[in-house]
């Protein structure tokens, strides 16, 4: 089983809101702006993302007290279920970059990485090392770096 396969939703009709959000995260993660999904029957879904990094930077810039603004924080959640194994990066205060692995979801020999989507600092570790963790559970929170 491939972790990325699990993350990319199958295109069967209009994707749900959470699927759209996941696709958007993947696009940002891969440094892409647009994606077009199509199926054999001719249905097409075209998506464009304006980088959430840029968006949150803007929010931070407009805010007088950016550190207090929790809305700019990015929650990194479990892309699959399994036993959560935190890496050494998963500590409050660690600087992270897109693609950094903060944890692994483990099921036997299967390991699915939990990836950070943005550049920033880890401000909260919600995941519990060694705990059985469900899909979508919060693992860490990242405060994106202002540019």
């Amino acid at each position: 089983m491939n972790a990325v396969e699990n993350q990319v939703p199958e295109f069967e009709g209009i994707p749900s809101a959470e699927d759209l959000a996941r696709i958007a995260d993947l696009l940002i993660e891969a440094g892409l702006e647009t994606i077009e999904l199509s199926d054999g029957k001719g249905a097409r879904c075209f998506m464009r993302v304006t980088s959430s990094v840029a968006k949150s930077d803007k929010q931070v810039a407009e805010n007088v007290t950016p550190v207090e603004d929790l809305s700019s924080r990015i929650a990194v959640s479990a892309p699959y279920f399994g036993t959560l194994v935190l890496t050494e990066l998963a500590k409050v205060g660690t600087s992270v970059q897109p693609g950094d692995v903060v944890a692994q979801m483990r099921i036997g020999a299967l390991q699915i990485p939990v990836l950070v989507p943005v550049t920033g600092t880890i401000v909260d570790v919600a995941g519990e090392d060694g705990a059985l963790t469900g899909y979508g559970a919060p693992v860490v929170q990242v405060e994106p770096t202002s540019r």
Binding site: M1, F81, Y135
Partner: peptide, 26 residues
């Protein structure tokens, strides 16, 4: 024991055969 195995879409949760077997394992 309770375990969230996927999003709302049944194809990625209640109909996900591999996922259910992995959930049984874990």
């Amino acid at each position: 024991v309770s375990l969230c195995i996927g999003p709302a879409a049944a194809s990625k949760s209640y109909l996900d055969r591999d996922g259910l077997l992995l959930a049984a394992k874990v």
